[in-house]
């Protein structure tokens, strides 16, 4: 059994990659995927700690995160479709009407 720190470290790397995706990509769908990646990184940490403490709650929590992610994807993609219909684009940089 490997120390749990390895898994958590991997989780941090994946999280950073996801965050980087949100920050540097303009494609709304890819940004969304990056968010999913960040959620996964968090899930990995949960499962690792569940193993660490021998407690099942961590895994149950992952289960709930998956449910929330599914709901989020359904709504989020619907939003993207709706935006695409009006703007004919999924470039988030074009949606800047809040500019001061």
């Amino acid at each position: 059994m490997l120390p749990v720190t390895y898994y958590v470290g991997l989780s941090a790397v994946l999280f950073a990659i996801g965050a980087l995706g949100v920050l540097i990509r303009r494609n709304a769908i890819i940004i969304f995927m990056s968010i999913e990646l960040m959620l996964n990184a968090a899930n990995l940490a949960f499962v690792a700690f569940a193993r660490e403490y021998g407690a099942l709650s961590g895994q149950i929590f992952v289960f709930f995160v998956m449910t929330v992610a599914a709901a989020e994807v359904a709504v989020g993609l619907a939003l993207i479709v709706a935006i695409f219909r009006t703007k004919q684009s999924i470039d988030v940089d074009q949606m800047s009407s809040l500019k001061g």
Partner: peptide, 18 residues
């Protein structure tokens, strides 16, 4: 001067959070 900060780009705001 401060209104320049409000770029309107979502990614920009996310960067601030990050």
């Amino acid at each position: 001067r401060l209104r320049g900060i409000q770029t309107g780009f979502v990614r920009n705001y996310a960067l601030s959070v990050f």
